[in-house]
Design a binder for these strands. Structure first.
Lengths: 205, 205, 205, 205
DNA sequence: AATGAATGAGACTTCATTCAT
DNA sequence: CATGAATGAAGTCTCATTCAT
């Protein structure tokens, strides 16, 4: 049933355009969110910022929350991709090196998207949990678990894996986020070092 | 740093009846927030939950956000009082003992008011800084600063006081909050120990 | 049934105080009206400006409109009294002199109470006609009628008394009011002269 | 001197349907104003009278006052058009003839729209100056100024142009309006004559 | 009488969503 | 598919008025 190649473009561009429209909507939504906050991000304003009519929004999303979720999901995808690349690139190195590198990239990523991050952290909790963000969290946790197990001999004997995992995840996550959002007068390199020291001090014998 | 006039309470309750009304409003607001989230916490619903007419709300608060601020302020007052008592009681003991005790009480307090804590963290959008909560935070930070200076000889030589203060505050704060809200399968005692270890590991030579 | 004089004061001061309270309310109302306009003159604000509780307003006036009417009535009484004195003082003089003097006083009076006049003219028409103001208007009209009749020989022969009366009243009234409210760059004396010329030009043979 | 942005219409109607909606809103607003006064003319009632939902009002007007302004503006446009036609038709005639004709048309126009005129004068509080009405006023004033200058030799020598202009404008305006609103028992022709006599008596040597 | 707490109708306005063209 | 007009529920807040003390 495949059409002759000369005719298929008819449909492809359409899907392509549709995809670009969706991207445009998400860009606009992120922009409006950053500029006016969750309460100020009305569907009308998003449509206007995206350069389409408000009616068209509903061709692509069933309701407003779906847009918000898509914005966060896309952000999660972006983080996943970039952190994944970093993981692939450094996984073979000793864990302190790899961990430090991952930390570095994560903070950098947060900083790049500080506006959106602020909205997600401060205003969107109201929407409840986000699947993709949770997935990323799980993936990182698993990574740390493997490292903990592989290098168990280097750590304190009394480590409870699950407790330690939870602690590490929370600490690294919260501190990274707060660092980016509160802008304390600590340079990036220093912050990475502090966090690394903190983790090492926590794990070492 | 005092709050803009738009968010301060309106009428200072003189009669007994009205003092009870204000308490009722704050209770109702916390309840509605917990049940329906920030967006669902309309002034109408809060009034209904408090068993008063919506007009009465505005006898005491100039607008909706002022109610939210008052909810948080009342919580901050409670925390301040309880933590203050703890500080007075243990300040003369060695810092690891006093610190651990303070940690213990703080987590216990959070647990007692987990519902309200969740509301504040997840539902109330940032309305500018909350004066009273910030005051408590400052007070605790100052306490830690004094201890850091008094016992400097016991710690790493390369500590930068301000950076360390920020790290400690963020970590202890975030982890305590997340512990109470996420309910990881870690017993209270254990969590206090872990946090204490974490801090000590971070500070020691 | 008259009480011994030594005891009656008990009641008189009370009525006196009551009268002063009413005056205070009217003063406050006029002040608030001038400062915040009709829509901004809420009963609460008037009570506050009068230094009494909102509940007390309703001991003296059955509702808000009654206050407004009383304010206007008191203004009308004031005008009536002052203009009446002027009439008594100059009625025996030749009509152009007496008329000019009356005009002069009227504009002066309007100027003294420009704020209140503005509210009455621009915002209170909504309340419908005011008896006392209408009474004053009637009284002045009657005065002019008498003069027209007494001095008929000096005027155009084709004057229709009622038409002329209406014209004179409207012109003098409207122009005086607009002069005070619009503040055109014409000195007081000049304005009185112009109006007098206008009237004389209209009446003369 | 252009109106603050808060009072300009919102959406420029493109489709035919919406143009009719706007007309309907203005008609309804005028009707409700006439029947219930300014304070009774709530947006809800206007919407109901227009047979649309209250939300639709706000597609076209940013707030209630903008509707009021639009009502007045539409009236001013109508007056401008009709008076303009009259001016074009009689400008070449001697000034007493042209002036009388203009006066005649103005009073006729007011009479045709007495309801609306009453609303504007008695009910619509001053929302800042009405641009279009002021424009018309300026245009008429300019016309009179030109005539005063052109025919200076026929008038009193001591005329101050600006004072005279202000007097004439106020008198003719106020008297016309009051004539239509108060319905004194004076026939139309007679009123035009009286006003013309008044003006001539005021100007002549 | 006076106070101030309480009331509740109703005003203006916004916004997610639907629908006719 | 897109547009933009239309919807109507719901939200925040004010205010004249009443009531308990």
């Amino acid at each position: 049933m495949s059409r002759p190649p000369g005719l298929t473009p008819r449909r492809i561009p359409r899907q392509d355009r549709s995809r670009r429209t969706v991207e445009g909507i998400l860009d606009a939504a992120a922009r409006v969110l950053a500029e006016r906050g969750y309460d100020g991000a009305s569907t009308n304003r998003i449509a206007e910022a995206a350069g389409i009519s408000n009616g068209s929004l509903y061709q692509y999303f069933p309701n407003k929350d779906a847009i918000m979720v898509a914005v966060v999901d896309r952000f999660a995808d972006h983080l996943t991709e970039r952190l994944g690349a970093q993981i692939d690139a450094t996984m073979h190195q000793p864990w302190p090196v790899a961990g430090r590198a991952l930390l570095d990239v994560q903070i950098r990523l947060f900083q790049e998207h500080a506006d959106l991050l602020r909205i997600i952290v401060e205003q969107i909790p109201r929407l409840g949990p986000f699947d993709k963000l949770a997935g990323l969290q799980r993936r990182l946790t698993d990574l740390v678990r493997v490292q903990l197990l592989l290098n168990r001999s280097e750590f304190r004997d009394d480590l409870d894996i699950d407790t330690t995992l939870w602690m590490l995840t929370e600490i690294v996550g919260s501190v990274s986020v707060r660092y980016v959002l509160d802008r304390p007068p600590v340079p990036h390199e220093r912050m990475v070092d502090e966090l690394a020291d903190l983790v090492i001090g926590y794990l070492r014998k």
